[in-house]
Design a protein around this nucleic acid. Structure first.
Lengths: 234, 234
DNA sequence: CCGCGAGTTTGCGCTGGAGCAAACTGCTCC
DNA sequence: GGAGCAGTTTGCTCCAGCGCAAACTCGCGG
């Protein structure tokens, strides 16, 4: 865990700071805390009260929520350029979920006071926050609809497509998802069990739709996954 | 459908305008479109492109989302003082869901340009929007967790408690939920079927936990519903 | 007063996928 | 190199609750 100088163009690539002048970005860069974090490190825990606004520069973070009964779901995966843990600054000042690195990760963060001050100076950041949170709200609402109405296989297909869209990059073999995913992760994000997710992914591997190497998924035939995700329930 | 003069204190009661000076509220009031809408009226439809920011003053609105396959879920119910349809102003400029009045309703709304201008003049409104959307995001994420991990009965119990908290008012008989709810509504908000929801509610009525009169629910023993909502799954 | 339609209740059979258990794979660390 | 562990695969059983169907209630208009 150590400090790094941060290039303004790294900030410019984040949606959070879109529409800002380079001079503004330079000031922000100077006030950003950047840390390199090892794999499987807990960045914050559900309920923690010293909240900061975070963003991933390189690597990835898994955001999970657990209920009083211990049941756990993955809220989302955060890839490069995305912010996380920021909503709690505006609501009750407690993180609503756990954040754990999926791999070695370069993370930026700002204290509550700093972010509020930045929004005050650059209202555009506020609008950016609304847009980002708004889009996530819509995504989560879509997930609710899927969970309520669709079968496990379709949900897994949708989850993979979302991940590929969010954090996929093209390779010769197809679209690879940047960060390592265990079967359990796939299960928790699509609202099923480890067992069912494993069965589904294995069957897709056998069919040649995708490959797993070293926990990393590569989608070889997105069209097939898409077809499954749109399949009628009967 | 007709216009009304709007009292600043009505706006002050809305979370959207919290923290604003009375003078500001007066200006806003003058720029608000207020309409009285009949029951079962469609305010906007999923996909519509002329988006406005809305709020309920009296009455209630059901927000539902339907997928390409026709399956439908209730996203949430909007009660007095709450805003709706606002997120789309910041994301893609299309309503992500349908809005239909549950009863005769007094509705306020602002055009996109007006709301953006207001946020620009009063950044506090922007922060309020973030807080409201942030809280909703957390609520929806909790719903995802429930749908993924809990049984139908617990989900219905949670849904009722949320509704009672959001739009309940105390009477001699217990907590009454302001707007009329069909069994189908309860099913769609708790992610189950009409049949299962009907069975569960009927059994609770028989047990005396709640009563339905004229589509309106009154919770007589919140503690019992709470117990069910926290019951272990085994 | 009667017929109609919307919403509700209830019975019954079927199945997706959860839950449990056990074997297997491939690491990492002695 | 082998013991141990994390993660995965796979077989089997079982049941919550979905889907279908039919009967019932109630308010409304004619």
């Amino acid at each position: 865990m150590m400090d790094f100088a941060l290039a303004p163009q790294t900030l410019a690539a984040m949606e959070l700071f879109q529409g800002l002048a380079v001079s503004a970005l330079e000031t922000i860069a100077a006030r950003t805390r950047v840390r390199r974090l090892s794999k499987d490190l807990r960045i914050f825990s559900q309920g923690d009260e010293e909240v900061r606004a975070h963003a991933v520069i390189e690597g990835g973070v898994r955001i999970t929520q657990s209920g009083s009964d211990g049941a756990q779901v993955v809220i989302r995966f955060i890839g490069p350029g995305e912010m996380f843990g920021t909503v709690s600054l505006f609501t009750d000042g407690r993180y609503p979920a756990d954040a754990i690195t999926l791999a070695e990760t370069l993370e930026a963060s700002w204290s509550e006071a700093e972010l509020l001050d930045l929004i005050h100076r650059h209202p555009q950041i506020g609008v950016n926050v609304i847009r980002i949170i708004g889009r996530r709200l819509q995504e989560v609402q879509e997930r609710v609809r899927e969970l309520a109405t669709q079968r496990a296989e379709r949900r897994v297909a949708h989850a993979l497509l979302r991940l590929a869209h969010q954090a996929g990059h093209s390779t010769i073999d197809g679209t690879a998802i940047e960060f390592p995913l265990r079967r359990k992760d796939v299960a928790d994000i699509s609202g099923t069990t480890l067992h069912t997710a494993s069965r589904i992914l294995t069957s897709w591997e056998k069919a040649g739709f995708l490959t797993t190497r070293d926990r990393r998924l590569t989608i070889r035939h997105p069209s097939e996954i898409l077809r499954i995700s749109e399949e009628a329930s009967d």
